[in-house]
Structure formats: C-alpha cells, structure tokens
Amino acid sequence: MSAEIIVNLYGGLEKYSLEGKRKDNRIKASKVNNIEEVLQHFSIPPDEANIILLDGHHVDLSDSVKAGNVISIFPLIGGG
C-alpha cells in the first residue's frame, strides 16, 4: 500500500494546493493523523471545507486517515 494520502481539492479549493492541482495532491501519511490535520496541511479554513469524503464516504474533522485513503474536499456546492 502507498505510504501517501491522496487529496482532491474541488470547487475552487485547488487554490489551496501547493502545486496548484485539483486532483492527486499527495501527503505523506506519517504527516497527518486526521482530516483536520489534512486541512491544516493545505491551510484550508475549516468553514470552507463543507463536504469531505474519505474513499467516497462523508467524514468529520476528527476522523482519522491512513495511507492509501483518497480524500475529496468540496466547498458549499449545489445544483442539480
């Protein structure tokens, strides 16, 4: 298993990517323990992260993360 966590920053949040990337931002798994620390890593204000999915499932800031997880972060979005 990869020792990295993959982070996707959608809906305009790619501005927080260190490499200006929307998809496939990578963090070493050893650097973060939970979702809140992932947000801190990218300096994303928690109130801008409205929907957070871990492997497609909704999670909270306190939920833990591990190597191989795919985390997708969205601001307040809508439509349909």
Partner: peptide, 25 residues
Amino acid sequence: ESSLTSSRLEDFGTAMLVNLSNEAG
C-alpha cells in the same frame, strides 16, 4: 452571503456537481 448562490453557481454552473457525484459513487 452564501458563497454558493452569490458566486459559485455563477462561476461553475450546476456542472460543479460532477466531481462530487463521481467521488461519492
């Protein structure tokens, strides 16, 4: 005051849902 109705729907349109729907399966 809502970032969604003030700008994000105008910026991205309803197509902004594509990535969310995909990630959520």
